[in-house]
Amino acid sequence: MLKHVLAAATLSATISALPPIARAADESPPLPHQEWSFDGVFGTYDRASLQRGFQVYKEVCSVCHPVKHLYYRDLAEIGYSEDEVKAIAATYQVTDGPNDQGEMYQRPGRPSDPFVPPFPNDQAARAANNGALPPDLSMIVKAREGGADYVDALLNGYKEPPAGFNLLQGMQYDEYFPGHQIAMPPPLSDNAVTFADGTPATVPQMAHDVASFLTWAAEPNLEDRHRTGFKVMLFLVVAAGVFYAAKRKIWAPVH
């Protein structure tokens, strides 16, 4: 019986390991795998990196990209104090209302507000970006094959198109974007941002930090999940041992 199971399992594993055929219908090079602090079973977020990444988002990406599922209060989780969070929120103008005259008005943001989007709606976003819609970034790491590696690679992947490549008007060539033609101009350049903690703002550094930040934005509960998971798995391993011993004891007279 067991050898049959093993034979079938091996054959099935071989079949499943066959590369998914032309999954992205393009010839992107394999995604370089970066080292992430949140990788693996014991992964955690590096708060310094998240804060730098937030700075990159705030100063570069937020011009076009919303993060509608993040609230200013969430920033407290990446190491900002309550006062810092209030201050950050207050730098944004939030549309509120209607007031007693029936009009909408602007007021400074509060921690309980969601991040103010750069455009009021999709049409305005397209109009400002030659018809392209900058996607919301709150889930982008979860919504793309390759996750943080993909975002990082994409940001680092702008280059001159190879000879003979038909690059359409207004598009840019990126090595890792499916189809290689991306509407977003390269958003990062060296020292585009001056990091508050003094880290040199090279493009790879900014890409890495913003990818970390966006991973946190997509999965803020990752550390909680890993921690609880560890306790649960440990408990279950111990329980398995005890239950197995109990099973053997109960069955002993029968075997």
Binding site: F235, V238, A239, V242, F243, A245, A246, K249, I250
Partner: peptide
Amino acid sequence: RRDFLILTTAAIGGVA
């Protein structure tokens, strides 16, 4: 020893 094992098993179950 068997009873202790059963007791432990039940306790683990309860905690779970």
